[in-house]
Amino acid sequence: MMTFIAFIGAAVAEITGCFAFWYWLKLNKSAMWLVLGTVSLWLFAYLLTLVESEFAGRAYATYGTVYIFASILWMWVIEGNTPDRFDIIGTFVCAIGALIIFFGPRG
């Protein structure tokens, strides 16, 4: 359960951080957005250290699907752009890959 919470928190923090930089650079908003972006990206990195995995790379690979799902949700809810069938299919394909990576039997 802690892994799931860490992944969700990391996704929110990473997307918020990246969006803050995007907001500042692409939309010419105040440089104060860089403070939010920096703090959010620091929190993102910290939260990924809470994931229960023997190897960081495996945790990061699995997290990629959570990030993809959260990004599509962000695009829909925050940016007002409805995901198309390719967004949805791609997210599910990634989810299957993440499940194999994270839960695959290792010997």
Rank of each mutant, 00 (worst) to 15 (best):
T82Y: 13
A59K: 07
T3K: 05
M32F: 12
I96K: 01
G104H: 09
R106Q: 05
I89V: 13
G80Q: 12
G104T: 06
T65W: 06
W24H: 03
G64H: 14
S71Y: 11
Y63M: 03
L99A: 02
G104N: 06
E14P: 07
G37C: 10
V66F: 13
T91L: 14
E52K: 06
E79H: 03
S30D: 14
A6M: 11
F44C: 13
S40P: 12
I88M: 00
L43E: 13
L25T: 07
G104C: 07
K26W: 14
F21V: 10
T65Y: 05
F44T: 10
E52W: 04
M32E: 11
W42P: 04
K29N: 15
T38R: 03
A61Q: 14
I72L: 15
V39D: 08
P105L: 03
F55M: 15
V39I: 13
E79A: 09
V12G: 10
A95P: 00
I96W: 11
G97Q: 10
I15D: 10
F4D: 13
E54N: 03
F92C: 12
F102A: 06
E79G: 05
A11C: 07
W74A: 04
T91K: 06
W33Y: 12
V51Y: 00
G37H: 07
F55H: 15
L73F: 12
I8K: 00
L36A: 08
G9R: 04
A98Q: 07
T3R: 04
Y46G: 05
T62L: 13
T82K: 15
L48S: 12
A31T: 09
A10I: 04
L27E: 15
V93K: 02
A95T: 01
V51C: 00
A56W: 15
C94V: 03
Y63C: 05
W22V: 07
M75N: 14
F7W: 08
G17T: 10
I101S: 03
W33V: 03
A98P: 08
A98T: 08
G80V: 10
V35R: 00
E14L: 11
A45Q: 10
G90C: 02
A6C: 06
I78N: 03
A11K: 00
V35S: 00
L25V: 10
